[in-house]
Computed example of a mutant assay.
Amino acid sequence: MISFSSLKALAGQLGLVILNKTPAPPAPQDGTWYQIKAAADVAEGAEAEAGQAIEVYIYGEIGAWGVTANQFIQDLKAVDDGTSPVLVAFNTIGGDLFEGLAIHNALSRLGERCTARVDALAASAGSVAACGAHRLEMASNAMLMIHNPWTWASGDADDFRKVADMLDQTLEAIVASYKRKAPEVDDAELRRLINEETWLTATEAKNLGLCDEVIEGVTVKAMVGDGGALRRYHKAPLALLASLEEAEQPPAAVVPPADEPPATPVPQPNAAALVSRIIKGCADAGISNLVEVLSMSGDLKDEASVDAAIARAKAVRELCVSARLPELAADYVKAGLEPEAVRARLFDKLAGNGFGEIINTPPLDDQPAPTTPKAASPAKVYANRKQARTAKPKAS
């Protein structure tokens, strides 16, 4: 089986992010969507109890729009004494698969002192990460969701074949992660459940061996992520979708005084709708290869900013193509450079490569017009050749 590091390197070469994430970070309701509470985090002057657990809360997306594996590992190292129990609580819609695999492996390295607890939902990459713990507990009202990896890509037929092969390989990594937690699970049945996007209750997960214990349900206040991501799944439970609808209901309107006109509410764009607009806009502009770069921008808050970013990206790419350096377009777009700044950088690169100054001004009016050479007479040419052959050499 291909190693995790090889998979991640191959994905980087193909420019892929294997994911199910949304284009904007979740807005936490209580400010605790990601938190590590160490045994030393006690009141000043108090002493930490021996063996007190280190508690980690991954409440939000996994990856660049939420908690990254590097952030998780570094934060944990900062408080881990090497002996205290570690409890990792999950309430996540998922995210970047490779980030989830990295967290899975980090939890696995903690050994028997690591317990994962699914407080509400561990979906997709979140379920992969949670299964890295030695012990996995689920609240009685929690769910574990498993499904196939997916991504977006652009390119020719060969590029898409590579993407398909890449997704097949990442599926094997997902299967291996679940089977590490549940070695006795039937391989064919597990693959069927993954392929069908299965939402497992705590009891169902325990029957498969993915869960060790079903505990009493808990009340969860923090968000699992943007609702747009949840709606992209084919079989999201209706009860879970209904809870999102309730959360999205606006608060009761405040009636302004009679002398103040009511304020017009500004509709907030849905994250999934913005991603769709980016994909369609890039396709229409002929810059589908820049979809991922634009989607990762944190400045795209509404339709107007998306349209402006697409127009700017198109202008940047056209400049790079004109300079015969199209490979630089993605980096310039990612850096958020304006076309004028890109033009200056391209000029510097061309001048530095020996192209010199580019001059496209017309000739001055006082310059003499170029003359057109006259055709030589064939008879005169032959006469000159004959004369040259019969001429006597001059004395030196």
Rank of each mutant, 00 (worst) to 15 (best):
P251W: 03
A313W: 01
T390Q: 12
L97I: 10
S6G: 10
A242R: 14
A313G: 01
I279K: 12
I146D: 01
E99L: 00
A153S: 13
L325S: 15
I73Q: 13
T22F: 02
E204H: 10
E55K: 09
S305H: 04
V218G: 06
Q268K: 15
P23D: 04
D158K: 09
L230Q: 06
S127E: 03
A130P: 04
G132C: 08
C282R: 02
H147V: 15
R161C: 15
A391N: 06
R231V: 05
G225I: 04
C114A: 15
S396P: 06
A164G: 14
P378A: 06
T372N: 11
L230V: 13
R117A: 08
A48R: 09
E112S: 09
P25W: 00
L230A: 11
K179Y: 02
A335M: 07
T371V: 11
R317F: 10
D365N: 10
T22K: 03
L244M: 15
L210H: 05
E292T: 14
N270G: 13
S377M: 06
A64G: 09
L200S: 05
D30P: 04
T151Q: 03
A369N: 10
E196L: 15
A11V: 00
R277T: 12
T219G: 00
D331N: 13
A309F: 07
N207F: 11
A236N: 03
A50Q: 14
V255E: 03
S297E: 05
L97A: 08
S5G: 03
A139E: 05
L238H: 12
M166S: 06
V218L: 09
A102D: 14
T170L: 13
G132W: 00
A125W: 04
Q29E: 12
A205C: 05
E216Y: 04
F4R: 14
G60V: 08
A388C: 06
A273S: 12
M138C: 15
W33H: 11
I93K: 11
E245S: 11
I2R: 10
F98M: 08
